[in-house]
């Protein structure tokens, strides 16, 4: 993914600006009139979806939900959802959309595109991971955990204390020589109603751009201030597995790499797609937990209480991450 450039082309009839905005919110793509690309994304006409992008009979169905099906085969993935069909190969993504697609919630629209993008990345040995990336003082961290475990709340707290930001809820992991590097996969914030109400403490998103995502969440791009905090990649020095506690104070406990690997496997995207890529993904996650200092973090009320308590949590996390002196997270000034 190093230097990977995505170029989006929409045929006439597709709301290209809207699609560009949606895709750019996820992946920071380039418009089609710019230079060459590593991955071209082509959005085709809305008029012939039923026969568009056929899935060959030889493809293997690897995931199915009421609204989405995913197939794998011959170095290619196919995804079909409500009003959208996609085919992802190593360097190309074809998308056919219908009017039905736009009736989905923004949450689902993003989800369809994210599945397609993560499938394409997988073919490039880059693996999606459910977590957030942050950097401070040349020290990169990953915050991960199950949905509702407090990842975004903790991330907002750290951003409000001056940390730099890679991505909310989805990051990409790739082997880069002897280390694992993490890259941004999603720039917008998915906010809960409560997070919106706490905007006074954490003014990190653009209040003017808040849109309803569905599923009780709202989407916003980074605020002007947060945009300046954006960083495209880092080599993480620590990984924190979050859960929400009821105590006042946040507690951090170091764990062994093997425990961390088990926890990380729970957050690995598409782990069971096929044995070959699973083996690469497993080895990548092993390298990640061995390069990182690994912690469980039980977030207390101090994460949202006040700027002073947030600053203490921030310092505690930075101090824990810095115990791992073997990793320099930001190198060569190549941040974006």
């Amino acid at each position: 993914m190093s230097g990977m450039r995505f170029v989006l082309t929409c045929v006439p009839g597709v709301d290209s600006q809207w699609f560009f905005t949606l895709w750019n919110d996820l992946f920071a793509v380039t418009k089609a009139d710019e230079i060459t690309s590593d991955v071209s994304i082509q959005v085709s006409s809305t008029s012939h979806v039923p026969g568009a992008i056929p899935v060959p009979a030889s493809a293997r169905l690897i995931a199915e939900t009421p609204t989405r099906s995913l197939w794998s085969g011959n170095d290619k993935f196919w995804m079909q959802g409500n009003g959208i069909k996609c085919a992802a190969s190593k360097s190309n993504i074809d998308i056919a959309i219908s009017k039905e697609f736009w009736a989905n919630t923004l949450f689902k629209q993003r989800d369809f595109l994210l599945v397609t993008m993560v499938s394409m990345l997988r073919l490039n040995d880059v693996y999606g991971f459910h977590g957030n990336g942050l950097v401070r003082d040349n020290t990169g961290i990953i915050i991960t955990g199950n949905s509702g475990a407090g990842k975004t709340t903790l991330t907002h707290a750290l951003l409000s204390d001056g940390w730099q930001y890679l991505s909310d809820d989805a990051i990409a992991l790739e082997i880069d020589g002897p280390v694992v590097r993490t890259r941004a996969l999603r720039r917008g914030f998915a906010l809960t109603e409560q997070a919106l109400q706490r905007g006074g403490i954490n003014p990190i998103w653009d209040k003017n751009s808040v849109r309803e995502l569905g599923n009780g969440k709202y989407l916003s791009g980074p605020s002007v201030a947060t945009e300046r905090q954006f960083i495209g990649q880092c080599v993480p020095a620590a990984i924190f597995f979050t859960s929400v506690g009821t105590a006042d104070a946040t507690v951090i406990t170091q764990i062994k790499p093997v425990e961390a690997l088990f926890l990380a496997l729970e957050q690995a995207a598409g782990l069971f797609v096929d044995a070959k890529s699973a083996s690469s993904q497993l080895n990548l996650l092993k390298t990640l937990v061995e390069q990182c200092a690994c912690y469980r973090i039980v977030a207390g009320r101090d994460v949202i209480a006040s700027k002073e308590t947030i600053a203490r949590v921030s310092e505690m996390i930075l101090s824990a991450a810095k115990k791992n002196k073997s990793v320099s997270s930001v190198d060569n000034g190549a941040l974006k």
């Binding site: 088990f262 496997l265 096929d274 497993l282 092993k286």
Partner: peptide
Amino acid sequence: KPGVVHTEMEAGTAVLLDMETHRYFS
């Protein structure tokens, strides 16, 4: 069994992944 993926950790331990049952073992 075919479809069991494994990786060895620094400490000499190993983690096994069963692609069929989606279970992990150390």
